[in-house]
Design a protein around this nucleic acid. Structure first.
Lengths: 346, 346
DNA sequence: CTATACTAGTAAAACAGTTCATTAACGCGC
DNA sequence: GCGCGTTAATGAACTGTTTTACTAGTATAG
């Protein structure tokens, strides 16, 4: 249990002051340090195995050297989020290269405001990335007033916060448009999440856009809301299949939900794509290997994370990029789960 | 941009000293505080919206109030880890209830020792949980000498560190035993990861145990190592199918890898379970909905996270539980992907 | 030969808490 | 009326950095 090595120890060994040690180790160019002195300090630090105390650094510099990834969903849903690893992987890339820490937080519904305030005031983090924001988040407006750099991953209409996302509406329109182009007119829609989540609402709008462009009347009976996981997809698909409404294709606004959807279709004794075309959203790793391989929208999850992180870093350095809402390109990936309309299944 | 509220502000408003504020807010019972004074302080803190500065607290108390989740895999693999969300969800449960922070770290292969030392000395965290340890991790032995509470999630034979895991060997033996019981004798094995990962090695041993118990000679030609993701599973399965070795069943030591395995089998024109029985490991959410639903081993991921976290908290409080290696129960989940042996496929 | 400007470095004051040692006040017994 | 113990609260030291303001020493210009 060796005693902590402090900057004083380094200073003593190098024969300089703590100030100088700090300047050297932080590459402060504003002051003049001779190369010799510099080297002496570096050698001393190296030989002692000096690592600055993060708390002291944070306290003195008023910078925590860490960012937070804040999730608005309960651990139960986090557990089945196939998307999260990609986000975290992407964030780690950046964070690591900038020598920052990554803190994971979760805000309880109903206590958002208090949680955000706590995070901000405790100064545990210098900025935060909010994942899957909810439309009914009461704390988000307040957040705009705090002076904490914040990036929304996901869009929230009307919010003044910076955001990084794909254009969910356009992407949904693209994939539903593909179904329309194949001749389908009765297209069911299973949303990824309940209405309070903005991505669900946006994807529904895109679905409607595609219908409208083809002069297909909107039928609310064909729209269902799933709840992130395969089980909810199974349930909603089963409900659709036993309903009186006929349809020849289904758009599922989340591949993770699609896992359950395909299963329900199989259990009902129908074939994809012969009886029913199925298109997804996200292109999770599973999609390319499903049976049949899934036509879907590629969500550039890691790139989203990269961009969100870099944008956050800019904000943390006091910059104010003029484009507040960054939208990344999505790509329609056509595989084997969709085919041209032939007839309505019985 | 309101100025920060400090404990001094609270003290002033309540008409007491900073010391008293600290005692009240930290529930220090060793000192006597009258209920009236106590209430005055609480009211003052409440009305000012006081939140202690995390850095200052950490510095003064020498406790960071945060734990770290440390991963030994590169972001590229992290991105396809279907397991991670469950772990994080489980950790968040506990961490939140104890008002701790959760920091995510990633150690680069080859720089493990330096990274661990940095983490420890920087005192950013009070303890850490190591995920999927590698047998060739040079920093791990050193870690035993540091006095930082550490929990291994995963087993590392010979390590003196506390660990929480399932009995990978026994679990693999159970599921392979199930295949044996069904009459299969030529059973291929696709491991979840390269040999340096202890879980791969342990599961291979369990596979061998099951063969040995049934007096089936071990055939190294039937063993392959995948690399965490579906694509690697596809590749290894394809290699097996085109090899000269016959087999009637395959044990895949990771469901995520199994996704690719099933796909390769379909592409080869074979049927599961008629031509080939397939058994997995992990029971990820997909497994219940795959085609056919997958026979697999249920990995209690969230419980593992819970236990690891509680054990870590014990360690952080200076306790030294006598059982250093906690093993959680796994359960064989029999679904439709395995059936009794009939004949070897051509 | 000073006044000035630069160099290279330092002393000391933050930063915002925790915690040990101390004290003031108070009743109590003798 | 004095020492004593107890209670409730405080002063001040301490945590390990950053950073501002300052200084001693040297070179340059007038």
């Amino acid at each position: 249990m060796a005693k902590r090595v402090t900057s004083q120890d380094v200073a003593d060994l190098a024969g300089v002051s703590r100030t100088t040690v700090s300047f050297v180790l932080n590459n402060v160019t504003r002051f003049n340090i001779t190369p010799q002195t510099r080297q002496k300090v570096l050698d001393a630090a190296e030989s002692l195995g000096y690592v600055p105390n993060a708390s002291a650094q944070a306290l003195a510099s008023r910078r925590a050297k860490a960012i937070g990834l804040v999730m608005t969903r309960s651990p139960r849903y986090i557990a089945s989020d196939t998307f999260l690893p990609q986000i975290i992987g992407g964030l780690l890339d950046v964070v690591k290269s900038k020598k920052l820490g990554l803190l994971i937080e979760w805000v309880e519904p109903g206590r958002q405001l208090a949680t955000y305030r706590g995070l901000v005031n405790a100064k545990h983090i210098d900025g935060m990335i909010l994942l899957t924001p909810r439309l009914d988040d009461d704390g988000l407006k307040e957040l705009e007033d705090f002076d904490v750099p914040t990036i929304l991953m996901g869009e929230l209409p009307g919010s003044n916060l910076y955001s990084v996302d794909v254009d969910n509406r356009l992407a949904a329109q693209k994939v539903v448009g593909h179904l329309v182009d194949l001749g389908h007119r009765d297209i069911a829609c299973i949303l990824n999440a309940p209405p309070p989540y903005s991505s669900a609402t946006e994807r529904l709008l895109g679905y409607q856009d595609a219908l409208e462009a083809a002069n297909i009347p909107f039928n609310n009976q064909l729209v269902r809301h799933a709840d992130f996981d395969p089980a909810s997809g199974y349930k909603q698909m089963q409900a659709l299949l036993t309903s009186a409404e006929p349809f020849s294709a289904v758009f599922t606004a989340s591949d993770n939900v699609t896992i359950g959807v395909l299963s329900a279709i199989r259990d009902a004794g129908k074939l994809v794509p012969d009886d029913l075309s199925v298109a997804g959203f996200d292109d999770i790793p599973w999609a390319a290997f499903s049976d049949p391989p899934l036509t879907t929208i590629r969500m550039p999850a890691q790139e989203l994370a990269h961009h969100a992180c870099y944008l956050l870093l800019d904000l943390m350095q006091g910059q104010t990029p003029e484009n507040k809402h960054m939208r990344l390109e999505t790509e329609l990936v056509i595989r084997k789960s969709t085919q041209a309309f032939t007839k309505l299944p019985v």
